[in-house]
């Protein structure tokens, strides 16, 4: 038990260190925010034009809100750790084996910190900007304070969930010589089914039941739908449970894969 506590503290330290590193690139953050805002404006312009000829049961303001929140937390979805990729490619990862930690926990803490800080730094200015936009373009207020609270909780679980997913991708990366193909594939699944390319709410209605159950929908789609009120407060418990369930499953799979990788690395001698 003591041991477990101590290693948790170590993961905490790794988390804080990566978080500080992430705050150093302020210039890049500004450029990234401007670019992301631009993409947001373009997307909303398209949806506005589409809505003009063909109103939907879902309000346009829910779509603009959806787009802004997706853009604001875009960084969360992006594969975040090129260092680590490089390490895996060059075999320098063998050094990490020398650390008295589980590899899974070590990388999980790193990834979580990067996604947390990276998206927070970008999301805050973007959300501020998006609120100030003229009506019809702006990020709307949450459905209610309670909805806001549920959305925040869902976002945190989503963050843990996406970190678990990335860690699984990493584990796979170690097994293939040229991971770029696999990564592109994972990226596409991520961008499509998390609602980044196209809000999941706009996917065909008959697909909705399946795609909202997929793990990708747990990252940003679920929190956003709670925020806009598309998921009623009564459903919140169920939604959060699905999210948490996926997170636990994905962490389990990732930890298993990393344990196997670790064993393989030791046998091969790095």
């Amino acid at each position: 038990m003591m041991n477990r506590m101590r290693s948790f503290r170590t993961y905490g330290a790794i988390f804080r260190m990566r978080r500080r590193m992430e705050t150093q690139y302020r210039g890049a953050v500004l450029g990234g925010v401007i670019c992301q805002v631009f993409f947001g404006l373009v997307l909303i312009a398209v949806y506005r034009a589409l809505y003009a000829g063909n109103p939907q049961h879902m309000a346009l303001s829910a779509i603009t809100t959806y787009v802004w929140l997706q853009q604001a937390f875009f960084r969360m979805l992006l594969a975040s750790d090129p260092d680590l990729m490089e390490k895996i490619r060059t075999g320098a990862i063998a050094y990490d084996l020398c650390r008295p930690l589980s590899l899974y926990g070590y990388y999980y803490a790193r990834i979580l910190a990067q996604k947390w800080m990276g998206s927070l730094l970008r999301a805050l200015p973007m959300i501020l900007l998006a609120i100030l936009l003229p009506p019809g373009w702006e990020l709307a207020a949450p459905a209610s304070w309670a909805a806001m609270g549920c959305a925040a909780a869902a976002l945190l679980i989503g963050l843990c969930c996406v970190s678990a997913m990335e860690n699984i991708t990493m584990a796979f990366t170690m097994r293939t010589l040229d991971p770029r193909g696999v990564q592109a594939m994972m990226n596409l699944l991520m961008m499509t089914f998390s609602g980044n390319i196209l809000p999941l709410t706009l996917f065909p209605d008959r697909w909705q039941r399946v795609i909202t159950l997929m793990p990708y929908a747990q990252l940003l789609d679920a929190p956003i739908r709670l925020y806009t009120g598309e998921y009623a407060l009564g459903e919140a418990g169920r939604i959060l449970a699905i999210q948490a369930g996926w997170t636990v499953i994905l962490i389990g799979i990732g930890a298993y894969l990393w344990r196997r990788n670790q064993r393989r690395l030791i046998i091969q001698g790095g």
């Binding site: 398209v46 034009a49 589409l50 809505y51 000829g53 063909n54 939907q56 499509t192 390319i197 196209l198 706009l202 996917f203 065909p204």
Partner: peptide, 12 residues
């Protein structure tokens, strides 16, 4: 993505 949009909105 374009095909799905067209599926929902029919035209732009």
């Amino acid at each position: 993505a374009v095909i799905l949009l067209v599926d929902r909105f029919d035209h732009l």
